[in-house]
Amino acid sequence: MIPFDYAAPATVEEAVALLAEKNGQAKILAGGTDILVQLREGLRRAELVVDVKKIPELTDLNYSPETGLVLGAAVPCYRIYENAAVAAAYPALADATRIVGGWQIQSRASVGGNLCNASPAGDTIPPLIVYDVVCRIAGPKGLREVSAAEFCAAPGRNVLEPGELLISLAFPPVAPHSGSAYQRFIPRNEMDIAVAGAASWVQLDPAGKTIEKARIALAAVSPKPVYAEEASVWLAGKPANEESFAHAGELAKKVAVPIDDMRGTREYRVHLASVLTRRTLADAVKRAT
C-alpha cells in the first residue's frame, strides 16, 4: 500500500478544489468499503484521499411524499432501510441496500459510492435506473445533472471528470399505484456478488389490472448496469399477469451481454436475466396493489 495524503473538507467547494488540484490523482472516500480495499490491493492509486463525510449535503437524507427523496451521496445503506417511510416509498432500493455485503458493510457503504464504483454487479444501481434517478454532480465548472442510467461508463468507470464530485441522488415522488422490487441471484445466501440482478418498477391502472408504465434494469449481465428499454416499453398497456411478466423477461434478456467467469457462465446469466425480470415484476405488481 502506497502512502497517501488525507483531507476531510467541510464544503463542496473545498472538496472540488482539492479534487481539481490533483487532476485525477485524488480518490473520494465515503464509506470506504470499495476504495480502501482497492488501494490496499493496488487496484487503484491515490496521492490524496478526500473524505466527503464531513460535507452536510453528502450525508443528508431528505424525504417528503410531495418532492421525493434527495439522498446524499455518502449516506450509508442502513439509513435507507431503517427509515420506514423511505423503505416503503422505494422498496427496490430498500431491497438492494439490505443485501449489499453484511451488516458491517451496510453501516458504512453508501448508495452514491456503489454507483461511483460502477461495478457491473452493483446491487443498488438497477433500482436507481428504474426510479429514473437524477445524479447531481459538482465540479470546477459548477453543477450538472446526469441520469442514473447514464452515470456508469464501463466496468469500474463512471462519467465524473477530474475534479467532479457526486453530491446527491434525486428520486422522483412516488407515483400512485406503483411498486418496485430488486432481486439478485447468488449461489449462497449472503456475502456474494450478484451473478445477475434485476430491478423492476411498475405503475398500474387504478383497478390494478393493467400495467400503465414499467421500467426494468439489469445488473451483472453487461459492462454496466443497463436499462432494459424494449421490455419496459412493451409492458405499457399489458395486463399485469404472469404471461406479461414472462414475455417481458424474454425481451429483457436481449440486453444481456454477459461474460463467462468464476461467478457464472454467459448462458446461465442470460437465462437468469429473464427469470429475475419475471420474478421482480411479479413482486413489483404485488407491492403496487
Binding site: 449462497r188 445466501n189 449472503e190 456475502m191 456474494d192 467467469d261
Partner: peptide, 27 residues
C-alpha cells in the same frame, strides 16, 4: 459450490473467500 476455478491459462480466478464459496451460516 466450492471449487478452484481456473482460467484457460491455468490461473486460479477465485482466490478469495468472496469467490471461493464456502457455506455461510445462512446456507
Amino acid at each position: 459450490n466450492e471449487e478452484y476455478f481456473f482460467d484457460n491459462q491455468g490461473a486460479m480466478r477465485n482466490a478469495s473467500f468472496l469467490d471461493y464459496r464456502m457455506p455461510t451460516c445462512l446456507d
